[in-house]
Design a protein around this nucleic acid. Structure first.
Lengths: 326, 326
DNA sequence: CTGAAAGCGCTAACAA
DNA sequence: TTGTTAGCGCTTTCAG
């Protein structure tokens, strides 16, 4: 155990009150006494016990951040962006990973709430009434990011559906007659929050269904590579639109293995604009995710403490970044 | 504020002791009373205040993890690996990012120590006597990862120097006569911990200097791209060995832009074996970093609490993964 | 200017 | 089987 205020009081021959006055720069203490105490503190390596302090204050200055994963560069960038703001605001970030797993997400959230974080930024894996109730029970300010849970919670995300519609329309305009959407929607039944993917798919569907004579396909399972290739890609002018860049990269690799050229034999687009795309050729068409801005907004919303119970639902407008892949 | 044990006691008309017996499954309580309390707890949404509990126990079950960055996929993989073990051990991970910045690193460490984490896993940015003293002052078990700080601290890393020597020797054996090492060693003076890069460079130097008639170069600055290209890559059989894959990827991009082919015009190798390499062609020669194992070992060391003050210094042996780039 | 004492919420030893 | 009480370390009010 380290040195406590009590120890210091004994060492310096003063009372606890005086120790506190010294550390917290409160008036009513001789400068000399203060100096003596601070010197002793340094000498004995006093470190305040934040648990005790926070228990007293009922606030910690920490905020919790829960994300799905870190290996997807997208999340890494998001965490970094938020971390940066938190640092500027002199606020400590507690980061936890849910792995898109309900149990873990809840465990992490519960843990953070128990630790009295002042607020939580959540990239949700869960949804539904149960989840709403659970979040309410945490009794903390929460801001949801990217995946909407319900209008009960302040939200910062993307206008996923319109942008995907625009992208799809543009692809159709380029002459593609068969469009495939790739996204892990097969997990839908399990109560997993797939808001973004569903929205993107919806935008895709809207665009294709408005275009006469264009085929629409969905590759939703873990075997999406096989599903896509089973279509016989060379038979029609086919474009594959992925709900995220990592799927596009996997497909590109697979196409290469099969001797299919992009965009010669098949068109390909991703979503998120992860940094790794810089190294890939052909340059993949994707959608720029305003991660920085999203992180900042989410943080602001949390810090502002949604006064007046407004529960803002913000949708940022992303840009389409045209590459050479479609 | 939420419901507390005291509230529950009042609500149920029992004493605090009984409440505690109910929650902590201690003997000496009627099952009926217990059930009544647990029911009330659920009904009123009781959430234990972990700050208070931990203050009592003087331990938290949390461990801290400090890494440089998350955007480098390498760290993301490391964090994920450790997170996985922590989850299995029912232990909460507090993740913080230092950005290789002394101030931030210290702030994060101090914060974690103040929060009474039970131990700290540190991928260090600092080094030197000051830093040793600082770490000692934290008065917590610490395990250092990858970058050695000093023999004072348990350490899990790589046999960076031997593996880099082996790689370099093999490259020379392939007929390359001019070897360039790329790594940000220019920061050396600022007291930043560059242990791994320095070790790798040392291995590189050893190998080249043992080979008569082979030129040795170092591109250490932020302008390494220019430095490398200024050598006139086509003039001699040149190989560029990078201290990490991300540099290799940048170089590959740059070479492409200049119409240089890899490995036709210049050989290229990385280090770390990040996942993104899967998507790159030509397949880049790299060194497999046993991240999983490293994370597990570090965690074990921390959990074991280095009894007997042994201060193990473990060096894992990585494999060279030959690709097509050299 | 300084000390004594109570309390944050939870726990556990000791009484009853 | 249950209640009382002291205490984790820090903060603050109220006396002195």
């Amino acid at each position: 155990m380290g040195v406590t205020t009590k120890d210091l009081a004994r060492i310096c021959g003063v009372s606890l009150g005086t120790i506190d006055r010294a550390f917290r720069n409160r008036p009513g203490i001789k400068t000399e006494t203060r100096d003596r105490i601070l010197a002793a503190a340094r000498e004995y390596g006093y470190k305040p016990n934040l648990l005790a302090r926070n228990l007293k204050f009922q606030r910690t200055g920490d905020i919790g951040l829960v994300v799905h994963d870190l290996e997807n560069e997208f999340f890494a960038q998001l965490v970094n962006a938020i971390q940066e703001i938190a640092w500027k605001r002199d606020c400590f970030l507690q980061i936890a990973i849910s792995r898109r797993d309900h149990q873990r997400e809840r465990a992490a959230l519960e843990h953070m709430a128990g630790r009295n974080v002042d607020g939580i930024l959540l990239f949700p894996a869960g949804k539904g009434e149960d989840f709403d109730a659970f979040l309410t029970g945490l009794d903390r300010p929460i801001v949801t990011i990217a995946n909407k849970v319900s209008p009960l919670w302040p939200f910062v995300g993307l206008s996923d559906r319109p942008v995907m519609r625009r992208l799809t329309e543009a692809v159709i305009a380029k002459g593609y007659r068969r469009l495939v959407f790739v996204g892990p929607l097969e997990a839908r039944s399990e109560g997993i929050n797939l808001y973004e993917i569903e929205e993107r798919y919806a935008g895709f569907v809207e665009a294709v269904d408005a275009a006469p004579g264009v085929e629409r396909h969905l590759a939703a399972g873990g075997d999406y590579l096989e599903q896509v290739c089973a279509l016989g890609l060379k038979e029609a002018r086919t474009a594959v639109l992925c709900c995220s860049d990592i799927f596009a990269l996997e497909l590109l690799n697979d196409f290469r293995g099969r001797g299919l050229s992009v965009p010669g034999d098949v068109g390909l687009a991703g979503f998120d604009s992860i940094d790794a795309l810089r190294f890939i050729s052909p340059r993949i068409t994707t959608v720029e995710y305003p991660i920085q801005k999203m992180g900042e907004l989410a943080f602001e919303l949390l810090a502002a403490g949604q006064v007046g119970a407004e529960l803002p639902q913000i949708e940022l407008e992303p840009k389409i970044l045209w590459g050479e892949s479609i």
